[in-house]
Structures are given as C-alpha cells and as structure tokens.
C-alpha cells in the first residue's frame, strides 16, 4: 500500500515539498510536475529512490536535474499512477 504523491508548486515559494518529504515513506513515490520540477536544481534537498518528474515541464523550464530522477512523459505518468495503490495530489 504505497502512495504516489504529486506536487506542482515551486519549492522556493511554498512548503508543500518540504512537508511531503517529511511524511514520505521509502515505498512511496514522488512525482514533480509544473513548477515543482524546479526542486530538481538542488540535489542536496531531494534524495528519494522513487522520484519522478514530468518531461514536458522539465523541458519547458530548462531545468537541469541535479538530483537523481526518472523523467517521465504523460503515458509513463499514467502508467506510474497505476503501480501505486493511490495518488495524492498536493493541491
């Protein structure tokens, strides 16, 4: 029973990522989309074995990922949601 957490807010203006990382279990997934992909620029803050980022948002923002991350396109994102028991979007 693992959860895929989805974030879309920039970690530089918002506490969602910090909060999510605090309650993230080792089996849980973390998918960054929208401005949340800016978090990838700082590798020290972001170390999680199941870390994903949405390709088009990374490309659109020219983010150079310093953290270890699997970049996924939309079909892969959808497939990913099915491998977790549920998805929690941090709205």
């Amino acid at each position: 029973m693992a959860t895929l957490h989805v974030l879309s807010h920039s970690p530089f203006t918002d506490g969602r990522l910090a909060s999510c990382l605090r309650v993230l279990g080792p089996e849980d997934g973390l998918l960054l989309c929208g401005d949340a992909v800016y978090a990838l620029a700082d590798a020290s803050a972001l170390r999680h074995p199941r870390l994903y980022a949405l390709e088009e948002d990374v490309q659109a923002r020219a983010v150079v990922a310093k953290a270890a991350v699997e970049v996924v396109d939309y079909p892969a994102f959808v497939a990913l949601t099915l491998t977790y028991a549920k998805v929690n979007s941090w709205l």
Binding site: M1, A2, T3, R22, V23, L24, G25, D28, A85, K86, N88, S89, W90, L91
Partner: peptide, 18 residues
C-alpha cells in the same frame, strides 16, 4: 509524528489534500 503520518496515508484507499 512523521512516521505515523506516512502510515496514515497508506491506511486509506483515498487521500484528498486541500
């Protein structure tokens, strides 16, 4: 505490975060 919240998230079928 944080670990208890991790477990709480995974105890339910659905989670809504607002």
């Amino acid at each position: 505490a944080a670990e208890a919240i991790t477990a709480l998230f995974n105890r339910f079928d659905e989670v809504i975060t607002l």
